[in-house]
Amino acid sequence: MEKNGHILTISGVTKTFDGVRALDDVSFSIRSGDIKALIGPNGAGKTTLLNAVSGLNPPTNGSVLLEGRDVVGLRTDQIASLGMSRTFQLIRLFTINNATVLDNVLLGAHMHLKPTLFGTIFLRRKIKRQEREITQKAMDLLKLVGLEKDAHAFPGELSFGNQRLLELARALMTDPKMLLLDEPASGLNDTEVEEFTRLLMTIKQQGITILIVEHNMKLVMNIADDIVVLDFGRKLAEGPPSAICANPDVIQAYLGVQSTECGVPL
């Protein structure tokens, strides 16, 4: 992070599935505190890249440096504990055993509590005190995303958009240095997208670096400091939004000639 101010540096990342190159020698870095957008057509390898970075599906080749430390080969939970948190393209909330909205957010504190069996059974007072503290924090986060009234509801009772916000609150509960968001605005209506944009700016102001995969170009153009374009698993272009909009290769492969989103004042 100190070095060049880059929190995340991806170099030469390649991922093959049965000989198919889903990612082909992708390299880029993210400055600490930035919002970087990852765009490209469907099947370009965006989610594959997020999974490679977060360890859910490690890359075949290449390195992923988080604050200068190579995290390739670490388990997903270890990478998460280093300060990388994420949301999922297809919502993945915890719903078994009547887990509530609040329970989902509270799980985000797991990596800081690392509860042991001994402590859980024999140090009840310590656990209860911890629980009060993190519940307070979880309620604050639910308030931030506007779900404090639904704290005791079940995730399945929330609207689609609210489930996405709940995933965001759960990710923030981990106190991440870096947030990976996989199409967080898909399925949201225009008003919700606007609210979501404001929310992301608030998160950015807290110093959290964001790597966002998103198809909503209006959102991307509004918030991104920097954009990477993937196409067929390769990096097609990288640069600030204005340069990406003007890039003929990007227009050809993804944005289309009639692109209006890029007309949004930057």
């Binding site: 859910l56 997903t76 939970d77 998460a80 504990s81 993945r92």
Partner: peptide
Amino acid sequence: QAARSFGVN
């Protein structure tokens, strides 16, 4: 997988 992503070993 989601549990792992939140630091659960």
